[in-house]
């Protein structure tokens, strides 16, 4: 069982150029991070490339981890998710592909819960539930599928500016709830 402290320790040692720690970090976290890439990119070959990008970046950036204020799994997941979405956007070139719609509600939480305290999860779920259902789903779609404003507008069949307004208001509401 890899604890948060273990992952933190590995990242710090990677920051010192420790290759053994890099391999240990890969063994401990690559399945989760590959899951991020697969979900966002929905293509195995591209997900493998994105995972490679992510670990190259992790090696290069681990030295600055200690000062950036992130918890270890959040840092790894955020970095990986951003690279995967960059790749997704580059592939799509902004085009909306309406055919591969995922049912967001279909996918329940996995047993992999070690990285995140259950109370934080229920807090976020509680705050998302305070939003209108379709707006909460738009936030989930942006996070889990990497949907852009264009794609969200198309999926929810509303004008782009309406989607922007929805999302921005939802973010303010969400923040108020999460900070309460």
């Amino acid at each position: 069982m890899t604890t948060r402290e273990d992952v933190e320790n590995m990242i710090q040692r990677v920051g010192l150029g420790d290759r053994a720690a890099f391999s240990a970090l890969y063994d401990a976290t690559s399945a989760k991070l590959f899951g991020v890439c697969l979900r966002i990119l929905n293509d195995r070959a591209e997900a493998e490339d994105a995972l490679q990008d992510a670990f190259v970046r992790i090696w290069q950036k681990a030295g600055s981890y200690a000062v950036n204020g992130y918890s270890p799994m959040t840092w790894l997941i955020t970095l990986t998710r951003n690279l995967a979405i960059d790749r997704l956007r580059a592939r799509k070139g902004g085009a909306v592909d309406i055919d591969e719609v995922h049912d967001l509600k279909d996918t329940g939480p996995t047993p992999e819960a070690a990285a995140v305290a259950a109370s934080e999860r229920s807090r976020l779920d509680g705050c998302l539930n305070e939003l209108d259902a379709d707006r909460a789903e738009a936030v989930r779609g942006a996070y889990l599928e990497g949907y852009s404003y264009d794609e969200l507008a198309a999926r929810f069949a509303v004008p782009l500016n309406t989607m922007r307004t929805w999302l921005r208001r939802s973010l303010i509401k969400l923040k108020d709830c999460l900070s309460a």
């Binding site: 996995t110 992999e112 779920d125």
Partner: peptide
């Protein structure tokens, strides 16, 4: 937002 990442199912590369 990272609790949402629980929905990313682990897959060994």
């Amino acid at each position: 937002l990272v609790p949402l990442a629980d929905n990313f199912a682990e897959q060994t590369p």
